[in-house]
Structures are given as C-alpha cells and as structure tokens.
Write a protein that binds this DNA or RNA. Structure first.
Length: 804
DNA sequence: CGTACTAGTCTTTTT
DNA sequence: GACTAGTACG
C-alpha cells in the first residue's frame, strides 16, 4: 500500500506526470493540495529529485507552512529544503542577494500602503497635482495596475499622450519610482517587477535560479497577474517543468491585477501542456455542491466543469432574512451557541463569512454578548497600528538610513520639539545636496536655514547611531527594549493611563514577543530579515487551528479554507454583490462577485446558512437591500426556508435558549427596543415604504436589484411609536422583497431632466420621459423605454441620466 | 510648536 | 460611524 493508492485516477495522473508543463484544473474541494503534496513527495521519493531543486509557490505564508508540513508527513525528510513560499517572499529572498545588481542596496526597505501614500502625497505637492481632482489613492492604484502589467513609467508615458489625467499619473509614476529608488525602498508590486528586471538584466543570476528550480509548482494559479506569470515563465525557462494548479471559477482577485487569461490561455503559451481536470469534490455534501454549481452556472466566461460528489444529500441549506442587521448577527451567534450546546459541533468548526471587513463589527458585538469565543481575520492589521508602525520605523531607520519615510515618521515621536518647518528645511538641504534625509540630519549644524532647531536634531542622530553600533553586540530583543527605554515611548503611554494607552502597550508587548520568537526560530536573525517578514505577513497567516474559536472573515480571506459549518452573512444585493459591481456597466464585475459567492458556498463541508437583513447601517447610512441574487440562483428545494423567516417561530427558539436574555424577554421584538433604538424608523416612515413598494411593484420585475441609500434625515428622527410592526406580515413571498426593500427615496434637489427629455436607465436603456409627478420626498417619473415599454419609477431609485 | 476641534472621506475585496 | 487630514488657536 503506497501513499498514492488513496488518490483517484485523475489525481494520480497529475501526480505522476512530472515532466513538462502541466495544467491542473482543480475544482473546489477536489483535493488539489493533496495532489501538490503528493506530487512533491513523488518527486523526492520516486524520481530522486533533490528537495532543494523543487519550488512551490503558494498564495499565503500560511498555505506555504501547511504544505511543507504535509510533505513532511508524507516523506519524513527534506521538506525543509524545499522552496515553498509566496510570490512576494520568493522575490524578497532573491532580491536580498542581488538587489545591488539593479542599483539598490541589499537591505532595501519594503513599503506598505501607508508609506506609499505618504510618498505620493509629497509627490503630488511637488508636481502640483490637485489631489481633489486626482486622489493619491487613484494614482497609486493606476501605478499598481501598471506594474501588474509590467508597464514601465516610460511606456506609461507613451500611452498617455493626449490624455491629461494619464499624463499626470505618468509624471507621478516616474517621480514615485525615483523617490523609491532614492529611499532604497520597494513597494509590494516592485518586488515582482524588480526581480524580473534583475533576471532580464543579469542572465547569469537567472541561469542560476533556473538551474536551482528544476520543478516548479504554482498554487492558486487563477489569481496570478501578468508580472507573476512572467516571473514564473522566466524561472521555468530552463527545465520547463512547470505545474500550475487553479480553478477559473475561484478567480477573485481581478481587482489586484489577476489575469484570468493566465489560466485560460496556459495551453496557448505551452502548447505541449498536459491538462488534467479534477472534478470530484471530497469536501461538501451534494446539497452544498449543487447550490454552488447552480450559482456559478450563471457566469458566461468560464471553462465548463461538472463538480460531483458521492456524499449524497446532507442537510438542506438554511436561509434566513431579518429586519435588522443586528438581528441577523444575533441569530448567527445564537445558532452557533445552539450547535455547541447540542454537541452538533464545536466553535472551531464554524466560520462566518461576509463581503466587507466592516461587517465584522456587528457580528463581534453579538458574539461577545452571547459569550462565544471568536477570532476576526484581517481588519486592522497588527502591523499597521500606530504604535507598532512607530517602533518599526525606528527599526527601519536603524536598518536603512535611506528610508526617509521611516526617519520622518519617528523624528518627532515621542515629541522632541522638532516641527514641520524644520523637517521641510532639512529636506530642502538634502535635496540640494542630493543626499538622504537622514544624512542631512547628520549635517544639521551646516544647515543655515534651521537656526536653533539644529541642536534638537543632534541628539536624535546620536541616538540612532548608538543603536546601530550596539546592534553589533546585542540581539533584536535587546534592541527593541533599548529603543523603548531610551525614547521613553512606553513610559509616555503609561503616563497617559487610559484604556487606549493600555491597549497600545499590550500591542507593544506583543511586538516584543514576536521579535523574541522570531529570534528563537532563526539562528542568525537579522534586522532586515525580521522587517521583511513583518512586511509580508497576510492577515490569514496568524490564524491557528488550535484555538477553539469561531472564525469571522471576509470571503476573500476564506479562500483555500474549509469548515463543517459556514454562515454567509449579509446576502443582500448592494452588499454582496456589492453596490459598485451592480451599478457598473461591466457585467464581468458581477461575474467576479459570483465567483466569490461560489468560493463562499464551497467552503462548507456539511452545513451552510445564508442570511441577510432588510435594513442595515453602512457608513452611517441606513440601507434597504433586497435578497442577494446569488441566493435566488440557488434552487428553492435546496433551501429549508424559501420564505422569509417567521418571526414568531424564531422567537420561540430564543425563548428556549438556555442563556439568559432577561431584558429581551420582557419586550420581545415589539418596537425593537434594544440596540439601534435611536435608529429605529418611525411608523410614518414604514407606511411610506409600503407605499413605495406598491408603486414599485409595477416596475420591479425588470429591475429587482437595486439598493437604496436612504437619506439620514428620515432615519435619525425617531418617533416613539413602538407599536408599529414593520411589514412582516406582508412578506410571505421572496419575490415581494425586492419591491418592498426599495426603501424611501432620497430627497433629490432638482431633476436634471424634464418631460419630453430623452433619458438613459442602467437596466432599461434609453427612453423618453412622459410625465413627472411630484411626491412628498421625490418625483414619480413615467418613462417610455424604447425596449421595455412604459415604466413608472421614483427619481431617486431610477438614477436616470439625461441624454443630450 | 503643540493641541483641539472640524470637515471630509471612506471601503469591496489584499500580497 | 470611524478615521484622518486640515485648520485655528493657545
């Protein structure tokens, strides 16, 4: 009995076909990690390939660690010499050795999003770019996309001719790259781009890595971008033993430059590619799988696949709709507690997935309330907290004096009486001499323009110099403690003595212990390496399986994971799919959301609950959203509750619950008197909704997916009319929801069109305005559409555009 | 130079 | 709603 006997036929083919280009199309849950690990084992064990000649690229460090572990379990030796890493850490490792060949120091700094923004802000000032018209964010986005596509500043410039905005971006891009170079820094995208540059400029270096990586495997191939593909193509150029694994249906990072063509056109680039499809799903029950299939089927641009399973049936999928978002969260917490209580599963078997990070908060509140242990993946990254960034900036300054961003961040933290003016003067001096900011500081007494402030700069420079020289003798742990003591950073926080300061001190302690454990794991731990590891951690990397906690995370973070019990929260059109993609005129955007839905559904092994709320607070505004189209795409017979949930029955379950909710019991649901009371809409408001829902019923069949942002003014004026029970009784059919959830219109000042004007509607196309009737808060517009006939609609919903 | 308040922005997703 | 950048004032 060999370890390969447990594989199915296709999996074995994928494992045994070791030479030449291979494309493995691996559906969700089809055992692709198993294939990859067995393939590595096979290479080492049966083909006598040295572990150090094998490379595996994964999407996250966590995946890399797990892969190494599993290979270790299979082979028992050598796994530590396999190169298993993400694209980014692969590139950093290469660049740390050879960056000097392309004009950087080998101890270059890696800039995160914050650093990028800081730099871009300065550039905009310098180039006199009006950031009201063209935001730093937008420029950085454009720059990043250009890098993903391997478009250099010069090429970008050539492509910008005649386009005013693009020309500005081009100038900024050019300047941005030169600042980065000057600061001896690279951003995330540069790590890939510069490695390619290195390979193209130094064939000897490329040759060396081509020799090393005789067998290359790439996981999550559908999410690679053009630059990453080029990198792989170069590396595999010697032996051509390139095996990529992916699933076009799970491509969810287009916004980050992922090029789906990489997987769809693999056979064109490598015409001798061996292709194998893994279609048997080992993860989920057939109900879950059928739901996933029926959703993804609605996408047009995909390779046809038929995932199947022999796990017949399983429990049906659950669907629940609630009036308020907090009720939804409360239900999920309650349901998890119930499952735990009834020994159906443990906390760690459950995960709650949602579209946006912001949705985590309301869930957290209810989990705390219910006393359920949970972890939130992502959100505010540990390393992007102020206090952590400050201390890291000290480390960066000590490590790389050319990193102006880091130096400027800490030059006056804690306060040393060094102000903005002084910093500007020093920068001017540095610019005139063409030296770094830090080097300019060293010559403070030469800078005539700063006068007395020079005396404040000297102690700072001395302090940094002393740290540097001490680093020869002590380790990173001593260094960080020395920094904290010398600067009095923690001492000042202690003086503040409030909750926030306490939390910050805790974070700093956490940082210290991270440094300590880093030093324990790495014998020759260097500052540069530590900073690099810190720069490249993903949110998901920190999650440990050993904790018995419910995991809360975005759908994106959930990729590659699986859980027996999965909750998909916020299944509303406008949330998921997001408002942005619904209103976009590119249908491919909704397709990407649908793939995300597919990823979410296929995370579930046994049990899947989909939920949504009719009313939800988003960025301080109350939204009314219809049930997600993705829920509607699931055949009704798979769901246990196709109808909106009966409030009464739900409530009885609450009553039975063993944990106390005394306050709640006294006022069951009437008036929704707990959380959000101040946001509770008035009775008048609700009758208004019903009204509009009836008015909308005429038009809703063509356009049921519209999410509406309701004007604040209406919501924030609560009346104490607690007896109003919002339209629950009316909601006996899912199809009604779309109409009802239209909500109230926003108060539009004036209309940009009048009777007789030609207008355009996002869904119905062009038409002529026939009538405009004024309503209390809006206008009812009658439009005769060229292709859809006459429709009545409210101006605030219809978003009609006048055609000139 | 440092602080406190205000106004504006944001978020869809992240290595 | 939360955070941040910008401004006015001490």
């Amino acid at each position: 009995m060999s370890i390969y006997d447990t594989l199915n036929k296709e999996q074995r083919e994928a494992v045994f076909h070791t030479d030449g280009p291979v494309l493995i199309l691996a559906g969700a849950g089809s055992g692709k990690t198993r294939v990859l690990t067995h393939r590595i084992a096979y290479l080492i064990e049966k083909c006598q390939i040295n572990p150090w000649n094998i490379m595996a690229i994964t999407f996250t460090n966590k995946a890399a660690g797990e892969m190494r572990e599993r290979v270790d379990d299979l082979v028992g030796y050598g796994s530590e010499s396999i190169w298993v890493a993400t694209f980014h850490s692969t590139c950093v490792r290469i660049l740390r050795r050879y960056a000097d060949r392309i004009g950087f120091d080998n101890n270059f700094t890696i800039y995160d999003t914050d650093d990028q923004k800081t730099i871009m802000k300065e550039i905009c000032k310098k180039l006199q770019i009006d950031t009201k018209m063209l935001k730093e964010r937008t420029i950085l986005g454009a720059v990043s996309s250009a890098k993903d596509e391997l478009i250099s500043p010069v090429e970008y410039d050539l492509n910008s001719i005649g386009d005013f905005t693009k020309l500005k971006i081009s100038k900024a891009y050019m300047e941005y790259q030169s600042v980065l170079r000057k600061n001896n820094a690279m951003d995330f995208d540069d790590l890939i781009v510069k490695t390619i540059e290195l390979f193209k400029n130094c064939p000897d270096v490329l040759k060396q890595y081509q020799e090393k990586f005789q067998y290359i495997m790439v996981d999550e191939y559908q999410d690679t971008n053009t630059a990453q593909f080029e990198l792989i193509r170069l590396l595999a150029g010697g032996y051509r033993n390139l095996c990529v694994v992916g699933d076009d249906d799970q491509s969810i990072y287009k916004f980050r430059g992922a090029n789906i063509r990489n997987i769809l056109d693999f056979e064109k680039v490598y015409d001798d590619a061996f292709i194998v499809k893994l279609e048997q799903n080992y993860r989920s029950t057939s109900n879950v799988l059928e739901a996933a299939n029926s959703v993804i089927r609605n996408n047009i641009g995909r390779k046809e696949k038929a995932l199947w399973t022999d796990k017949e049936g399983g429990s049906s999928l659950h669907f629940r709709q609630f009036d308020y978002a907090y009720e939804e969260a409360e239900y999920i917490a309650f349901d998890v507690a119930k499952k735990k209580r009834e020994l159906i599963c443990d906390y760690k078997d459950c995960a709650v997935l949602f579209r946006t990070n912001a949705q985590a908060r309301i869930l957290e509140e209810q989990f705390v309330k219910a006393g359920i242990p949970y972890d939130v993946v992502g959100g505010v990254n540990f390393y992007s907290r102020k206090e952590i960034k400050d201390l890291l900036a000290y480390l960066k300054t000590i490590d790389n004096g050319k990193d102006d961003v880091a130096v400027k961040r800490i030059i006056n933290v804690p306060k040393r009486g060094i102000g903005a003016t002084t910093i500007v003067r020093v920068q001017e001096y540095a610019d005139s001499r063409n030296i770094s900011f830090y080097d300019a500081l060293k010559e403070a007494d030469q800078i005539m323009t700063i006068g007395k402030s020079a005396s404040k700069l000297k102690p700072f420079v001395d302090m940094i110099q002393i740290f540097r020289s001490k680093l020869e003798f002590y380790g990173l742990k001593e260094l960080i403690k020395d920094i904290i003591d010398t600067t009095g950073y923690v001492a000042q926080l202690e003086a503040d003595n409030d909750e926030e300061a306490k939390a910050r001190i805790e974070n700093i302690d956490e940082l210290i212990s991270k440094i300590v454990s880093y030093e324990e794991e790495h014998e020759e731990a260097t500052l540069s390496e530590f900073l690099e590891e810190v720069a490249l951690v993903a949110d998901i990397d920190g999650i440990s399986k050993d904790n018995n906690k419910v995991l809360l995370m975005t759908l994106h973070s959930s990729k590659g994971l699986e859980f027996p019990h999965v909750y998909l929260a916020g299944m509303e059109d406008g949330i998921f799919p997001s408002y942005m993609t619904i209103t976009s005129d590119d249908p491919a955007e909704v397709e990407e959301e649908r793939r995300l839905a597919y990823v979410g559904i296929t995370r579930a092994k046994e049990d899947l609950t989909l939920s949504c709320a009719k009313q939800r607070m988003i960025r301080g505004e109350t939204q009314y959203n219809p049930v997600s189209r993705f829920v509607r795409e699931i055949p009704g017979e798979l769901l246990d509750n196709r109808l909106p949930v009966s409030k009464k029955r739900e409530f009885e379950e609450y009553e039975e619950a063993s944990y106390e909710r005394a306050a709640f019991k006294q006022k069951p649901y009437a008036g929704v008197s707990r959380v959000n009371r101040e946001q509770k809409p008035s009775g008048a408001f609700y009758s208004r909704i019903s009204q509009s829902s009836q008015a909308e019923a005429v038009t809703s069949e063509g356009n049921p997916y519209q999410s509406i942002v309701k004007p604040k003014a209406v919501v924030t004026k609560p009346t104490t009319n607690a007896s109003v029970k919002p339209f629950i009784a009316k909601q006996d059919q899912l199809s009604n929801i779309a109409g009802i959830s239209k909500g109230a219109p926003s108060v539009s000042g004036t209309l940009s069109y009048g009777e007789g004007d030609r207008v355009k509607h996002i869904k119905f196309g062009e038409g002529t305005v026939k009538a405009i009737v004024e309503e209390p808060r809006d206008y009812q517009i009658t439009v005769e559409f060229d292709d859809y006939g006459t429709k009545k609609m409210l101006a605030a919903f219809a978003k009609l555009q006048k055609i000139e």
